[in-house]
Amino acid sequence: DTFTFTLDGIEVRLHGASEELIKTIEELLKRDIRWEELEKWIREWEK
């Protein structure tokens, strides 16, 4: 599955994202998160 969203005018596609990761990103997007914050968060998630 591919999860697609737009952040700061950039279309982002995550391939093979888990349901948990998708739900977490959706929550972060509701908080009007900035790209830099999401990028940092995703790097931490990957560890």
Rank of each mutant, 00 (worst) to 15 (best):
L38V: 05
R31S: 15
E20W: 11
D32E: 10
I22W: 03
W35R: 03
I42E: 01
T2C: 10
T6W: 15
W45R: 03
E26M: 14
E19S: 12
I25A: 01
S18W: 03
V12K: 01
L28S: 04
H15A: 06
I33T: 06
L21P: 00
F3Y: 14
I33W: 06
L7F: 14
K23I: 08
I42Y: 09
V12F: 09
E19Y: 10
D8W: 03
E27W: 06
E26P: 01
I10H: 13
I25P: 00
R43W: 11
R34H: 12
K30T: 11
L21N: 04
R31V: 09
G16S: 05
T6Q: 11
I10D: 02
T2K: 06
E44F: 09
I25N: 00
F5S: 02
R13D: 09
W41V: 15
I22K: 07
R13Y: 14
E46H: 14
W35H: 04
E36G: 07
E46N: 12
E11K: 03
G16W: 06
E36C: 07
D1K: 08
H15C: 08
E19N: 12
D32W: 04
E27H: 07
T24R: 14
T2I: 12
K40Y: 11
T2W: 11
L21Y: 05
G9Y: 04
W41Q: 10
D1E: 13
W35K: 04
F5I: 14
S18R: 03
K23C: 04
F3K: 01
L21E: 07
K30A: 13
E44A: 11
L38C: 03
E44C: 08
L38Y: 10
W45M: 07
E37D: 12
E19V: 14
G16D: 09
R31G: 12
L29D: 01
E19W: 08
S18F: 03
G9R: 00
L21S: 05
K23E: 08
E19K: 13
E11R: 01
F5N: 02
E39N: 09
D32L: 05
E20S: 10
D8Q: 03
E44I: 07
S18T: 14
D1T: 07
I25K: 00
G16M: 07
D8N: 05
S18L: 03
E37A: 09
D1V: 09
K23L: 11
I33D: 04
E11L: 05
I10T: 05
T24F: 14
T6I: 15
I42D: 01
R31F: 10
W41F: 15
E11M: 05
F3G: 00
S18N: 10
F3T: 01
T2V: 13
E39D: 10
I42T: 01
R43V: 13
A17P: 07
L7V: 15
E37W: 08
E37N: 07
T2G: 10
K47V: 13
L28Y: 06
L28R: 04
S18V: 03
D1Y: 09
E44L: 07
L29S: 02
R43A: 09
D32P: 07
A17F: 08
F3S: 00
I22G: 02
L14A: 01
W45A: 05
W41G: 04
L28W: 07
E46A: 13
D8I: 02
G16T: 04
T4L: 07
A17S: 03
F5K: 03
E39W: 14
W45N: 06
R34V: 07
V12L: 05
R34A: 08
G16Q: 05
S18C: 04
G9M: 03
E26G: 08
I33G: 04
K40L: 11
T6Y: 15
A17Y: 06
I22N: 01
I42S: 01
L21I: 11
E36K: 09
E44T: 04
E26R: 10
V12H: 12
E36F: 08
L21R: 04
L21K: 03
L14E: 00
L7H: 08
D32S: 10
W41T: 14
I33S: 04
K23A: 13
R31K: 14
E36P: 14
L14S: 00
I25S: 00
D8K: 00
E26D: 07
E20I: 09
L29I: 13
E46T: 11
K30R: 13
T4Y: 15
I22A: 03
L14D: 00
K47M: 12
I10L: 06
E11A: 03
F5Q: 02
E44K: 05
L28P: 00
I33M: 06
F3W: 08
L7C: 09
T4D: 14
H15E: 15
K30H: 07
E39G: 05
E36T: 12
E11N: 03
E44P: 01
L14Y: 02
L7Y: 12
E37G: 05
D32A: 09
E19C: 05
L38S: 00
I10Y: 09
A17L: 08
T4N: 10
L21T: 13
K23R: 13
W45H: 10
H15Y: 12
L38I: 04
R34L: 06
E39C: 11
S18I: 03
R34M: 07
K30P: 01
I42W: 06
S18M: 03
T4R: 04
E46R: 05
W45Y: 14
K30G: 05
W35T: 02
W35L: 12
T4H: 12
L7I: 15
R31C: 04
E46G: 11
S18H: 05
H15S: 13
G16I: 05
T4K: 03
E36L: 09
T4Q: 11
I42L: 15
I25H: 00
R43G: 13
W41S: 07
E19M: 13
E26V: 13
F5C: 09
F3M: 02
V12M: 05
R31Y: 08
R34G: 10
L28G: 05
E20V: 11
W35Y: 13
L14W: 04
R43M: 11
K40G: 11
H15D: 11
D1H: 14
I25L: 08
A17R: 02
L14I: 15
E39T: 08
E20Q: 12
K47N: 12
L7M: 05
L28A: 13
K47L: 12
D1G: 11
I33P: 09
F3H: 02
G16Y: 06
I25G: 00
E39V: 11
E27D: 12
I33F: 06
D8G: 05
I42K: 01
R43L: 11
R34D: 06
R43N: 13
D8C: 05
S18Q: 05
G9V: 04
K30S: 12
D32K: 08
K23F: 10
E20F: 10
E46Y: 15
D1R: 08
D8F: 06
K47A: 12
T2F: 08
